[in-house]
Amino acid sequence: MHFDASSIVPLYQQITTQFTAGILSGAFPEGEQVPSTTEVARAYALNPATVLRGMNALVDAGLLEKRRGIGMFVVAGAQAQLRQAAQADFFDQRVGAVVAEAKTLAIPKAALVAAIERGYEE
């Protein structure tokens, strides 16, 4: 994980983003404990309250759960949930933008579809 102290994105949000990425990629497997607030704070010289805020956002989103006395765990189905959301985002934002740009560049639909098919074959 890496944190940028000069980014426009607030630190607590960077924490949320990076933990989300970790769950999505499977680095933090479902049902497993994630690094504690203290661990993350110590490892990256971050204020513990900031780390807690970032991780609480994930608890609120239903991706992490707090188990009293033990720590925070990845909720079962969190990865699927995130993938679904990421996929929806992909179609909404990315695909739409690609098609718009293809139209602007006068690329015919068949050429675009063919390129997509080639991509899946590789």
Binding site: T37, T38, A41, R42, A43, A45, P48
Partner: peptide, 12 residues
């Protein structure tokens, strides 16, 4: 770096 980590450890 070690100091900051230890500071946070005792602080938490």
């Amino acid at each position: 770096e070690q100091f900051y980590q230890e500071l946070l450890a005792t602080y938490t």
